[in-house]
């Protein structure tokens, strides 16, 4: 660590439930999202977390950034561990002591952790599952996941003569969660903290399993400027590429509308290095058009216009 002389004011201690001193990268959307979730949930919670960036940058023994009870076990079992925590609280008559929140990244949720999550949702545990979606395996060096968007460049879906990046569409994880017949499914974005707060608070009042997926830019993996984390997140929503909605008992009850006239997807893509290859040749325009079609379909499907 460099030895900068610390100057300037230093009065009251930081009071967030995700304590400062964590080692997330500069401008990390996931750290921000976790801070906002904890802030909304309050102290009377028990959280689980899958292996991944969030776990690594918050729990380097002997330090921990968590001001609430926290447990990390493995990559794919955050939902199952949370199921056990909830079952134990019930068994011990301590249900009123804490709400249970399970956390995972997009890989830990939609890929390797999908089975455990499905089990948790199906069994009806009173747990809020939060997926911090930064759209790739960032902790291991930006490899593609099931939630990586179409044509996105990652270290395992590189751009090349025969490749425009990730060949597959982003998995409809909220749809999969909703298919379990759970009472509450929502998506959100770090660009809208008040919305995260409202959704977390609302979810925690609903008994049974809840699923919340938060779009969390990763400057390192998205090759975006750290100070633009919020801008990038906003553009994902404004273009229709990341639909933000609330679904109660299987019905969409609320959406965040896109701007009119609609923002072309180029605006979102061009400020991220992970899509830079699309702008290098005229053929890339055809790919951008495909991405525009994805946004248009979202706008229609979720009624975002």
């Amino acid at each position: 660590m460099t030895t900068t002389t610390v100057t300037g004011p230093k009065e009251q201690a930081c009071d967030t439930l995700l304590a400062a001193g964590h080692t997330a990268c500069t401008g990390c959307g996931e750290a921000l999202a976790a801070k906002l979730v904890l802030g909304a949930a309050g102290r009377d919670i028990i959280v689980t977390d899958a292996t991944g960036c969030l776990e690594v940058f918050t729990t380097r023994f002997p330090q921990s950034s968590w001001e609430v009870p926290f447990i990390h076990s493995l990559f794919e079992n955050s939902a199952a561990v949370a199921s056990g925590v909830e079952a134990a609280l019930k068994a011990l008559g301590r249900q009123n002591e804490a709400k249970v929140i399970a956390q995972g990244g997009d890989g830990g949720t939609a890929d390797i952790g999908l089975q455990a999550l499905s089990g948790m949702l199906e069994r009806g545990h009173n747990v809020l599952y939060v997926c911090y979606d930064n759209e790739a395996y960032m902790n291991t060096g930006v490899q593609r996941s099931g939630l990586t968007p179409f044509d996105c460049m990652t270290t395992t879906s590189p751009y090349g003569e025969y490749s425009w990046g990730n060949k597959h569409n982003k998995k409809d994880m909220p749809g999969i969660a909703a298919a379990h017949g759970i009472p509450y499914v929502a998506t959100a974005s770090v660009a809208f903290p008040k919305d995260i707060e409202n959704k977390v608070k609302k979810a925690l009042t609903i008994p049974g399993p809840k699923y919340l997926q938060i779009h969390s830019p990763c400057p390192l993996g998205w090759r975006s400027n750290p100070h633009l984390t919020i801008k990038v997140a906003k553009l994902a929503i404004e273009t229709g590429l990341y639909p933000v909605f609330e679904m109660e008992n299987g019905k969409i009850t609320k959406v965040r509308k896109v701007k009119t006239p609609k923002t072309p997807v180029e605006e979102y893509l061009k400020i991220q290095g992970r899509f830079a290859h699309l702008f290098k040749s005229p053929k890339g325009q055809e790919e951008i058009q495909k991405i525009q079609e994805i946004a248009d379909r979202n706008i229609e499907k979720y009624g975002l216009a």
Binding site: I71, N77, A80, S83, G84, E122
Partner: peptide, 28 residues
């Protein structure tokens, strides 16, 4: 028998459920 019996979708989750339960203070 007064216990929370959790029917899981795999042995991986069975072990993970008892892990979470034990860490919460339950005999599992």
């Amino acid at each position: 028998l007064k216990t929370e019996y959790v029917n899981v979708e795999s042995e991986h989750s069975a072990a993970s459920v008892v892990l979470g339960a034990s860490a919460t203070g339950a005999r599992a």
